[in-house]
Design a binder for these strands. Sequence first.
DNA 1: CACTCTGTCTACCATATGGTAGAGAGCAAT
DNA 2: ATTGCTCTCTACCATATGGTAGACAGAGTG
Lengths: 196, 196
Amino acid sequence: MRPSTRDRILTSATDLFGLRGVDAVSLDLIATDVGVAKQTLLYWFPSKDELLEGVLAQAAAELVLVIDAALRSAPDEPLERLDAVVRAVFRPAVRRPALLGLIREVSRLPAGVAEQLTGRVQPLAQRAHAYLQAEMNAGRLRRADPGLIAALCYATVTGIATEPEALRVNGWEPSAAGLRRLRDELRAFLRAALAP
Amino acid sequence: MRPSTRDRILTSATDLFGLRGVDAVSLDLIATDVGVAKQTLLYWFPSKDELLEGVLAQAAAELVLVIDAALRSAPDEPLERLDAVVRAVFRPAVRRPALLGLIREVSRLPAGVAEQLTGRVQPLAQRAHAYLQAEMNAGRLRRADPGLIAALCYATVTGIATEPEALRVNGWEPSAAGLRRLRDELRAFLRAALAP
DNA sequence: CACTCTGTCTACCATATGGTAGAGAGCAAT
DNA sequence: ATTGCTCTCTACCATATGGTAGACAGAGTG
């Protein structure tokens, strides 16, 4: 079954926004990509801002879902759980690089949209914070500021996923084997950074 | 002495490009910010692309210089040297958040400009690569792929510096004390990630 | 049939943007 | 004085963009 026009618009907009940046992508471009008139697009999302909002809401929801699932099925050991999250995030991030690129756009968004989005992610961050704190107290993680550690892990993962240039400069290439190696190095890097 | 018009344009463009993104910043905006007519701007840089090129070249040169200086005066111990680089990069990055934000734009640039820039940074990356390799062999760093390690360090630093949202979500705030704490956590994080 | 609702379209508009053409002011050299 | 060079400006233009107005087709309903 073919997805609805609305969904096709969301998918296309997510990819284009994430890949080229929100400002660089015109409604006309998205419409062409979807194969529909611009006004159809404006019928579903009355303005570019609302389209962006929809795109972000969907992407955030998806990400939260993926992470949640990974955590639920991971063993009760902090480094293993971290591993599970990285693996879980890595797959969709590689298949659709736009997803993380999109998140990187947040800092440039109008305040309202940004807040709405951060609000959606906040619960996740708070859970992570509490969890990290507990594990640090239990001596299973290196003692540090849990909030900053969470932010640093996030920065490392999104940073490496959204900056292919940095990888290319360092002689990496995006083959299947390269991706595996990158994923494993990333996991080892974070493990080492967090191990007690 | 007042800086030249050309320099004032470069400064302003660097800040605006880095802060809001290249596409979101118009020549008119930059001109207004500098306090000059748009055509003056086009006199010094015949097109927006060439202005961008100039901005990137200057920023890259500055960054290379800062890192070079930090390395030259650091002791011969890998973790200390890493520390020195982080501290050196942190200061200008905090004073002018646009600088790192600008680098983040690279992945969205027309191929020509991007290549020119990566070419400029390549020597630095290669030096880092060789150095990391040697220190790993000497057992003073955790053994791993040196290229990916360099990329991961870079991703962590630029990621954390360019995503204040991620920090805010985790309850951090941009006071002087907050900055010190962030810098120290970042150093500890990277040290732990690289220590043998 | 008439009426309304949904979804898509064509036609159009006001504005912003990157860029061109060319004038004029200040200044140094001939 | 004239010429030429450097730097800045006003005036203008073609195009792209976000968005409005409204027509039209089809489906469901009285």
